[in-house]
Design a protein around this nucleic acid. Sequence first.
DNA 1: GCCGTTTTCGGCCCGACTGTTTTCAGTCG
Length: 575
Amino acid sequence: MKNKEIARVFESIANILELKGESVFRVNAYQKAARVLGDLTRDVEQLAAKDELIKLPGFGKAMVEKVREYLETGKMQRYEELKGEIAPELVQMLEIPGLGPKTIMLMRDKLKVETFADLKRVLGDRTLAALPGMGEKKVENLRRGYQLYLSARERMTLGVALPAAEEMVEKLRKVKGVKDVSLAGSLRRMKETIGDIDILASGTDGAKVIEQFTKQPQVQEVLAAGETKGSVRVEGGLQIDLRVVKPVEWGAALQYFTGSKSHNIKLRELAGSKGMKINEYGLFKGKRRVAGRSEEEIYRKLGLDWMPPEMREDRGEIEAAAKHQLPKIVELEDIKGDLQMHSTWSDGADSIADMAAAARKLGYKYILITDHSESLKIAGGLTSADVKKLLKEIDQVNRKLRGFRVLSGTEADVLADGKLDYPDKVLKGFDMVLASVHTRLEDPAAVTTARLIRAIENPYVRIVGHPTGRRFGFREASPMDIEKVMKAAAANDVALEINAHYERLDLSDVHARMAAEMGVKLVISTDAHSTAGLEMMRFGVAVARRAWLVPGQIINTWPLDKLLKWCENVKPKGR
DNA sequence: GCCGTTTTCGGCCCGACTGTTTTCAGTCG
């Protein structure tokens, strides 16, 4: 699938046009096209083959032509030309916080800045501050932005952002004069990675709340502090933005600051078409506020059902809400078991009995123990002889449990050729077999695709773990034809995992939705290596919610007997 | 560059904060 690849080209075009000072609307058009392509669950090549590109929102004649050109030639003439006009490092400078297109081009034209080395030079001397519209403070701000860019270019994972945000929310709840506090922004939408942390509070004296916010002990630097808005940097370089609104504006502000940006734009267009105006203070008809206290009220007055923050990405949720056809997406409470975890038998920290007890505390009815298989020696993979002992221990643990079941399983390593590293007679002994790839993650797409499909076709395999192998901050997803893999999973009734570890979240939201649309079953598993690791389930559920999944599509929302029946009924010929 | 039962041309989402200004530009979300 070349969706992401072409999206990146459009994004680059948008950036260059922005630097050139082209109409912001044209820039927006490219940005929108990039976003639509990036979110697409269907293969852009197939859409092109069916002449359906034009149906995509934001795709007119020019965009369609450019996609076609890229698919046919591997290049986009327009992009090739544009690349020659602006030095690539200038384009990259757009990522520096506080530095925008106007300043970048000013530096280029007046100070001959073309590279990061040049930027460093002008930030160090006095020439930049002397330019029109610039000044010492602005330059100081840019210096900080540049340092931040160097140190923290990666977006942070949910596992890092959420605890820091929740700590601040708890502190703010105790501040005098604060009524409501909530997460907002991409964190409330539970995006896979977070740029910065947005928190919203309501109260009558905004300036005082902001002041208290900036005085919290974990604050290292105050970036901005006004009447309604403050911004700080806390330990670890995380930026936290706080907005304070009046209680009467709470719902409108929460909606507004939750976003996403594209969701909000569409909402404002909708409001406009109904003769209303929406901003962070409310929904207005002329000067009259017709809604604002709650999100439900805002959406209702626009003719929409309220929708969970995870759905607000302008991926069809507004249209569905208008028709009252929003799916009832999965919730953490729907999860009845966890189907990937490791114990002391391989590289886990806790015993099977302890994992079971911890899972039970979470309200689960079953777990699947999936210690590593023989070839993954580095993780203490079990030999066939070990497996016999493992099964015995699981039996023993189960004998002491009522209303809870420990299922026996393995995270069988998928070998380079797609075979598993246990013989059939060992695989047969498990309640469920999970197969994962841990090696040769950078093989060519065709190789990895064939390897995964062979594993999926293995009659004992029920689940494929962390299917693409991505890890935030470590590596990209392995190249593969994901659609082919999903087709095989659908045909063989093998479930694909949404690995809930915040460094993986693999499948991604877009891929999970794509899988569900193709009729593939999914499973949300923590891959816990300790009892504490079981708590990551919420991150996986967030991905599922962002993928619009409903409980029935996720096998670990099923009751135990249904799950066991599914294990027995599928692939009858092979068993 | 896209889009249209108010339009095929003229719109295109809206406001806060900062720093440089003396009424506003740039950046951000």
